[in-house]
Measured scan of single mutants.
Amino acid sequence: MSGNGNAAATAEENSPKMRVIRVGTRKSQLARIQTDSVVATLKASYPGLQFEIIAMSTTGDKILDTALSKIGEKSLFTKELEHALEKNEVDLVVHSLKDLPTVLPPGFTIGAICKRENPHDAVVFHPKFVGKTLETLPEKSVVGTSSLRRAAQLQRKFPHLEFRSIRGNLNTRLRKLDEQQEFSAIILATAGLQRMGWHNRVGQILHPEECMYAVGQGALGVEVRAKDQDILDLVGVLHDPETLLRCIAERAFLRHLEGGCSVPVAVHTAMKDGQLYLTGGVWSLDGSDSIQETMQATIHVPAQHEDGPEDDPQLVGITARNIPRGPQLAAQNLGISLANLLLSKGAKNILDVARQLNDAH
């Protein structure tokens, strides 16, 4: 009898209710805020589980004197976190989706994509230029951005401005803007500013005609071990179906173009009346040469937790077992079709030249 009692006690200790789920994140304040929001949602869904947040620095956090596009290494903000995932030191990792490459290392998958916040870019102005827009900034004003995508589009749109690289986390960039006289304004992701509670610093939100956004911008991705079915089931509740389908289309477009950090590629997606609209573009580094096109596809946005595919093969690095396969494939095909259209119009040449120029500098 006593033996059975011990077995029952052991089973209770090993039951999922007692389990601590370890969540990996970057150390920056924004990353911690984003991770806290994901953990809060998981806690609400699984009140019996405990969650421990483990923060670590990544290569991208450490190399702050070089433009991201020049470092010449993929997975700048993800490699150390993936290493911890691989060694079973954490069970899942919360990322900004735009930091996750469209091809993940073997053994990993994006197990959830959370509801997207505003994906557009924002302009934050130096205190002396508050009330201005990019259009009304004085001639030769210097605007800071760490992104080739932003610089290429904005140089084309605002030729009277000069664009220079600015690195560091959000706090560091804002301090550089406010305390030094080098920059009249800087460009940042609206979602990051909003998550930090800095709505009052948003001086201008850039519309798609001015600057399309990065693939996955404004959404959070939760990376897990691809074979860890328990954790895949656990994080599945975080999937937002519309965000998922938009981001599958965007990531398929980028992957098929073979774009990345070192080339200016941008997108804009919208879901309306059962249609998914995808606009994508590529630019030369100075913005003088560009190709942009829009395509659409009829896609039914499923309700969360309709029964999805059981075999769960990944699409552009994403596993969404609780979302039907048909809409996911339709979104992926839309991204591939748009990429093929741009490639047929000469996108590869623009991107190759951009890559060579970026590598040469």
Rank of each mutant, 00 (worst) to 15 (best):
G221T: 06
P159A: 12
A40Y: 14
T41K: 09
A266C: 01
G216D: 01
L68G: 06
R116L: 04
D352E: 04
T298M: 09
R255A: 05
T35C: 08
P313I: 15
Q217C: 03
P302R: 04
R325F: 14
A152C: 10
V282T: 07
L343D: 14
C247I: 01
S146K: 04
F129I: 08
K79F: 05
A297K: 01
L276Q: 04
L234M: 07
E139F: 14
S45A: 12
I318E: 05
S288K: 07
T25D: 01
D307A: 01
T279H: 05
I323P: 01
G221W: 01
T102H: 15
A214M: 14
I71N: 10
P159G: 09
Q153N: 01
T109K: 13
H207S: 13
L232P: 06
S147N: 01
L97S: 05
V202R: 09
L338A: 15
K43H: 09
M295F: 07
T279V: 08
Q34Y: 03
L49E: 01
E80P: 08
V235C: 01
L232W: 08
K27L: 10
L104K: 01
K115D: 13
V23R: 01
Q332H: 15
V301Y: 09
S146T: 08
G280L: 03
P119D: 04
S57R: 11
D65K: 14
L104P: 08
G111P: 01
R195W: 05
G346E: 15
L238W: 04
P208D: 04
P264K: 01
S75H: 08
I336T: 01
L334Q: 01
K128E: 15
D230T: 01
L100E: 13
I205P: 01
T172I: 08
K43F: 06
R195H: 10
E86M: 10
I53E: 07
P324C: 04
Q29T: 09
A40G: 12
T136P: 05
F77K: 01
A151G: 11
T59A: 10
K98D: 01
V93K: 01
N322I: 08
A67D: 15
L161N: 04
S146E: 01
A297F: 01
H268D: 09
P324H: 14
D99V: 01
Y277C: 08
G287T: 01
P327H: 12
R173N: 03
Q275V: 13
C211L: 10
D289W: 13
I318V: 14
G216A: 04
E179I: 15
L100F: 01
L170I: 10
S96K: 01
E80Q: 09
M56V: 07
Q155V: 10
S344Y: 08
D312C: 14
I110S: 01
D121A: 01
G60E: 01
D230W: 13
L148I: 13
L68I: 13
S344A: 01
T145R: 05
E52W: 04
L341F: 07
L329E: 01
T279K: 04
T269N: 06
L104V: 09
V123K: 01
G192L: 01
G274N: 01
K115F: 11
L134N: 01
Q50T: 10
L351T: 13
Q34I: 06
G218P: 01
V267P: 01
H207R: 08
G60M: 01
H305G: 14
Q50M: 15
N118T: 14
L254G: 01
C114P: 10
L81I: 12
S141V: 09
A360M: 01
S262F: 01
I54P: 01
F129G: 08
F51H: 09
Q332M: 15
T319S: 11
D233N: 13
P327S: 05
A354T: 14
R246W: 06
K227C: 01
H256A: 15
L30M: 07
E82T: 08
E52L: 05
L64G: 14
E139Q: 15
R156F: 05
T145D: 01
T243H: 11
V202F: 01
F51S: 06
R225A: 03
E117L: 10
K348T: 05
Q155G: 11
T279C: 01
E306P: 07
D311Y: 07
W283T: 05
L100W: 05
Q29N: 15
Q292S: 14
G216F: 05
V90N: 04
D61Q: 01
T279I: 13
G281H: 05
T136E: 11
G216R: 01
G168E: 01
I205Y: 15
L193F: 06
H239T: 14
L220R: 03
R195K: 03
T145Y: 01
V215F: 05
A347T: 14
A297C: 15
P127A: 09
G60S: 01
V301N: 01
K132M: 14
A31L: 01
A189N: 03
T58V: 08
F253Q: 01
L245M: 14
A67L: 09
N171D: 14
V103Y: 01
Q296L: 13
E209Y: 14
H95L: 09
L206M: 14
L234Q: 08
L49I: 07
G197R: 10
I248N: 06
I71H: 08
R167S: 08
A31P: 01
G203T: 01
G218T: 01
H95T: 07
L315I: 01
W283L: 04
R19T: 10
S344M: 05
Q204S: 15
A191I: 01
S57M: 01
G259Y: 05
L49C: 01
